[in-house]
Design a protein around this nucleic acid. Structure first.
Lengths: 255, 255
DNA sequence: TGCACTAGCCTGTATATACAACCTCGGGAA
DNA sequence: TTCCCGAGGTTGTATATACAGGCTAGTGCA
């Protein structure tokens, strides 16, 4: 019966998502229990369980053992922005990525880097400053500190072929990261390195990377405000149902 | 056997995550098949299936029917930034949120709003401009357009008690959204509304919201660069294993 | 009236079994 | 030699069954 090739647990999920998105089921409403779904749709309890469990994992519903399943409260839903690898982002736009190294040396930690990496001020760190170019237009100034113990051979890499962040995640996958994004005016040196106009602001991304519970790298990424933007598309997961998605063109100002 | 109260599928997941994070299993390596896990750990195939399936959903591994399970390639992992509701963000910091309405009227669509909402220029739209205050300090200028058909009663809401975005998501949950973040200099009016210094840049978030496959609202959110930042913490999902997480303080510049 | 306890529902997990679809690889036929 | 096809391994789904543990409401006792 029913549609061919669409698994029953998925049909069940879409049925419930549809009832939520049309407003038939409202936040905090009770969702049919596993046994009620068994009776009303004829699936086995394990199949109903899988449908409801996945809806729970995806944030559509909240389940409480012994009580029931309820439509989640969406008002706190926070959307997300992607922070991609700069080289991937550039090649995604069909342009060429290259990098100019400005500085590559072992330097003592300044106050900010020391705090971020949980080391003492003046502790030795590996420092790399380079400008990422998109088809020969500077698009990002990366100023990065790395804990020497984590990747002693960091500065010896050929950063024409691999970005610093890609190299670090190849040293240890499954890193945690913390990002902060803000708008700020660049200093003289940054403005010149990025070929920026007077009075043009920077989009600054600060990233601290953790591996095995320890901070291992700290980076400040400066982007010209007129040539760079972060974008992100959020869609509720698992909903093949309705929702034609908006085309997600990687817009970029030409300048 | 083993630890009490930790489900076996979860123990299996953590076992495999540990093997990945220590480097014993490297990206593209083959992960033991379900039947191999059955033989080596004594669980049933359904339990092994659940462990591997969830690792697949969480992005740790890639599964191919008929072939096997392989450690995922993490180098393309894109991190995410959260864009929260401004009122939630403020109350999360323990401050008070209030809002000053600057404009509330039906206006014809300008070129940008018309393009974003897929309507003709000069089509009637509901427009709301308001300043969000954090303990009486202006923190966000929201300039929003809403499709009248979607929420005809939009302008009649009391936006002291509910933010425009929270109201819209109560009209229809499960919205899709597209965000763009950039740095730009404010115009005169914006700078005054937000009490900004001369030469201070704005962090500008542009958000288009979709419901049922149709764009329904378009907003530009201007934030003073010196008083606002976006932050996000990324941790690989499901890994209770190691990884002490960095404390995620909601930092904010004072001034 | 007030309280303790239990019956009954709910989710969470674990297993054995079954079948379908897919892919790879090697053996056998042309 | 080359091509086809099938055997065997792998994932994907579906079901029936079982037991544990949490929560609630209502019964019945004090």
């Amino acid at each position: 019966m029913t549609a061919a090739a669409i698994p029953r647990y998925r049909q069940l999920k879409e049925l419930i998502i549809r009832r939520i998105s049309t407003g038939e089921l409202r936040p905090r409403d009770r969702v049919p229990s596993e046994n009620e779904l068994v009776d009303s749709t004829g699936v086995s309890r394990m199949t109903a369980n899988r449908a409801l469990r996945e809806l729970n994992d995806e944030g559509y519903v909240d389940r409480v053992a012994g009580v029931g399943t309820f439509v989640a409260d969406f008002k706190a839903a926070s959307h997300v922005l992607e922070v991609r690898n700069i080289a991937d982002e550039i090649s995604l736009r069909g342009h060429d990525h290259s990098a100019n190294i400005l500085l590559s040396s072992e330097t003592p930690a300044d106050a900010i880097a020391a705090a971020a990496l949980h080391v003492n001020i003046n502790a030795p760190l590996l420092r790399l400053r380079l400008v990422h170019m998109e088809s020969d237009i500077p698009i990002q100034l990366e100023d990065r500190f790395v804990l020497p113990e984590f990747a002693p051979e960091f500065l010896q890499q050929n950063f024409a072929g691999i970005t610093p962040s890609a190299f670090l995640s190849s040293v240890s996958p499954l890193q945690e990261a913390e990002h902060v994004v803000r708008a700020a005016m660049p200093d003289e040196e940054t403005r010149n390195s990025l070929n920026m106009e007077d009075n043009e602001p920077c989009l600054v991304v600060t990233r601290t990377t953790w591996a095995h519970g320890q901070p291992v790298s700290f980076a400040r990424l400066y982007h010209p405000g007129s040539r760079f933007e972060l974008s992100g598309h959020y869609a509720p997961p698992g909903a093949e149902a309705a929702s034609r998605r908006p085309e997600h063109g990687a817009r970029q100002n030409e300048s």
